[in-house]
Computed example of a mutant assay.
Amino acid sequence: MTKTWFITGTSSGFGRLLTEQALARGDRVAATLRRPETLDDLRAVHGDRLWAARLDVDDAQEVSAVVDKAFAVFGTIDVVVNNAGFGVFAAVEEATDEQIHRVVETNLLGSIRVIRAVLPHLRNQGHGRILQVSTAGGQAAYPNFSYYHASKWGIEGFCETVAQEIAPFGIGLTIAEPGATPTGFGGALGTAPVMSEYDAGPAGAVRRAVEEGTFQLPNDPARVTQAMIDSVDREPAPLRLPLGSDTYHDVRAALTARLAELDAQRDTALSVVRGEPEGVS
């Protein structure tokens, strides 16, 4: 069945691939990006099945206006993809306040703005699917990505709550978690001057792996985006969609470690219950 998509951050990477693949299968796409002319080649091929608009998700008024316009143009939008993002590759003390603000503003607050803007429309039409693009770093953590993790762990927590709240309206939500994939995103990461204090530790080791080309990017970007597209036809909507061998192994290891840490603190957790603690051995 033909679907209509609203996708943010479509100039390159996953956003561009999602747009191309959705159009190739006969769907309609409202594509948003900072420079709409970037998609002129696709518009020449697909005509009015592609509607492109300028959107900076950091601008709340612009988000609301563009979302309203997209629904006015297409009438119904079946799938909303929150893909626009920004990352900083730096140790915790190396990043600037401006970089930190941009990461949180775009990845967390920008995604929240889009979801809040589309929900009235999706509720009124009685169906829809939200696809939030996160990362393996939404549940696992890696040196030099602390602020990226802050934004992605934050949006995953937000989306877990939203998924519960919107289910009665016939709206599903899936958090897509791609692993390391050669999309060009790494080249667009913000960086900062290296501090020698961190260069000898884990942050420096990861930085050198990237510089030397030994940092592994094991996943196929076209397969990643195809799996995202396929997921919107699954009922009920999967809450999370792990994509990549590194995602599966890293997230599983992180969850296993956190569960072990939780169990190790069981007695302490139960000891603060008022009255006679239950189950304390």
Rank of each mutant, 00 (worst) to 15 (best):
S111K: 12
I175P: 04
P202I: 13
T135W: 00
R223E: 14
G179F: 03
R234Y: 14
G170I: 08
Y198G: 06
R113G: 15
V114S: 09
Y147C: 05
K152W: 07
L18E: 03
T4S: 06
K69Y: 13
V162D: 05
S281H: 09
T256G: 12
G137E: 07
G13L: 00
A70E: 10
L262T: 06
Y147Q: 04
A180S: 14
R25F: 02
I166E: 10
V81Q: 03
R252A: 05
L270G: 02
H46I: 10
R240M: 11
A117I: 08
V280Q: 09
T38F: 12
R129D: 15
E160K: 14
D250K: 00
G213I: 13
P221L: 05
T2Q: 10
E93R: 10
L39R: 10
T268K: 04
F89Q: 14
A44G: 13
L189W: 00
E261F: 13
E20K: 02
T38L: 15
I100S: 09
D220A: 11
F89C: 05
L131I: 05
D233Y: 03
A260L: 07
Q21Y: 01
S12G: 00
M195F: 09
G184S: 05
E165Y: 03
F215N: 00
I229P: 01
F169A: 05
A222T: 12
A192Y: 13
G110A: 04
A180G: 14
G204L: 14
I7D: 11
T106H: 15
A136R: 00
A72S: 03
A91M: 02
P168K: 05
F169P: 05
T106W: 09
N219I: 02
